[in-house]
Design a binder for these strands. Structure first.
Lengths: 92, 92
DNA sequence: AAATCTTACGGGTGACGTAACGATC
DNA sequence: GATCGTTACGTCACCCGTAAGATTT
């Protein structure tokens, strides 16, 4: 599990497809496919059901999605906190 | 920011030194040093004050530490949730 | 046949370990 | 002088993009 994988996972879930997710992430489709594959492998759980061109979250995917969002949000919050602290009482 | 960096950060904070952290992480000292350096760089914030052989958390470090623990805990919780789900009703 | 995901392949970047260095008690 | 953290360097694995393949509508 890594941030890149989680990001890709959320993007695919949000957009309902690898192609659209790839655009949002400024990556190619194969890159997103590999990221998801690696994430699935590292978690030992299928996250999407590939039903032809339809991409649907599995039960594991539905379970992970809110947690992934949470983790990404926490990461961004931490970054912001440090940024804000850097700007506190010392400008530049 | 990556999981490896956060893990190293928490380990160094907990053990009060890079050497002890390296042992816990099954890494060498230089590897831990580099991880911390990269984390600090990616966050644009010094996390430890190297006062001779004394390694002390900076204000930024103190701010990050609980958040880092939280993120790591969330990650482990997510892993556990998926593992548990895999084992539910199907004893592999 | 068009669109979508997956697999194969080559190139570049990053991470680790060993070795060497500087600093501190 | 012994211990600890940092820097330098070589090697290996990983990630990405391009190209080709398989499958569905």
């Amino acid at each position: 599990m890594d941030w890149a994988g989680l990001n890709a996972f959320v993007a695919v879930a949000d957009h309902g497809g690898f192609s659209a997710a790839a655009e949002q992430l400024h990556l190619t489709q194969p890159a997103v496919s590999k990221r998801i594959a690696l994430l699935e492998e590292s978690l030992k759980a299928r996250l999407f059901d590939r039903l032809g061109r339809q991409v649907v979250l599995t039960e594991a995917g539905r379970l992970l999605l809110p947690r992934a969002r949470q983790m990404l949000a926490e990461a961004e919050a931490a970054r912001r906190a440090l940024q804000d602290m850097n700007g506190t009482s010392v400008a530049g």
